[in-house]
Design a protein around this nucleic acid. Structure first.
Lengths: 80, 80, 80, 80
DNA sequence: GCTACGGCAGTGGCAC
DNA sequence: GTGCCACTGCCGTAGC
């Protein structure tokens, strides 16, 4: 069970640190959104863009294996 | 502004209907999870399975367009 | 490693079972959405409604403990 | 329809900007997780902590209204 | 203006 | 017990 008698100051410090970090995180999230908006304005398809970026995060080996198995299943299901 | 004087019975009825439906929804979610578990036990890759199922939800035309653009972007980024 | 030689028919059967279940699940999700819409139309605050329903899922003991600790923290942070 | 003939360099630039920002965002997310871990190690209840921090984001007026309506509904449902 | 969809964050369950 | 992954609910955005 979490303690019930605790230092206020400690709690405050923790909360403030978290709030500060979340603020910064939000700022970055906004920046990212902005860049996607810019991309869209330039005619790029945002959905595809996201997919490509996600794909780049995977190492090539993983991507290869995934693709292979995907095709295998898709084929078995008659998704030509 | 939402009303503040309202019929208790109406509120109760609504809440109960929602809870009942959510219960049923949860049961189905459990069933689905179970089938995936079965698939896994039979050697299927669940992650790929999910992807394929998701893919099947898209109409062929959309899939085709998405793929084409994906390849286009991937190529432009040198993801061979 | 997941098997690479597998029964097409087995895969198909699994996928179809999942798709069927997901369909039913979606139907229920739609029903739920509809009830919330009805609630809204009757002047209820949907956000609050969701919170109350969520709250009802917790057992009374848990709720009590949570509330107590919440107040404790809030107090320590000067959120009167 | 999104353009199909586009500048590779532009795409690359956009993707790299996004990836850079996401990296920074992830670093902050990790930092936050770390602080919560620290809080937990000091006996704080993380779930409650999150709730309190979320609550602080709402302006007092909103909080007040929400609470009032919550109690109203809860009462109507016999959740004493 | 509201309704519907998609993405994001938080929670819980599973695996190591 | 910890870390990872998927599911769910919430929120903000886009379309009717």
């Amino acid at each position: 069970m979490p303690e019930t008698s605790f230092a206020k100051s400690q709690l405050k410090a923790l909360v403030e640190r978290i709030e500060r970090l979340e603020e910064e995180k939000k700022a970055l999230a906004d920046d990212i959104k902005e860049v996607f908006g810019e991309a869209k304005a330039n005619g790029f398809d945002v959905k595809v863009l996201r997919a490509v970026i996600g794909w780049r995060k995977q190492d090539p080996e993983t991507r290869k294996e995934f693709d292979a198995m995907f095709d295998l299943y898709a084929d078995a299901l008659g998704m030509t």
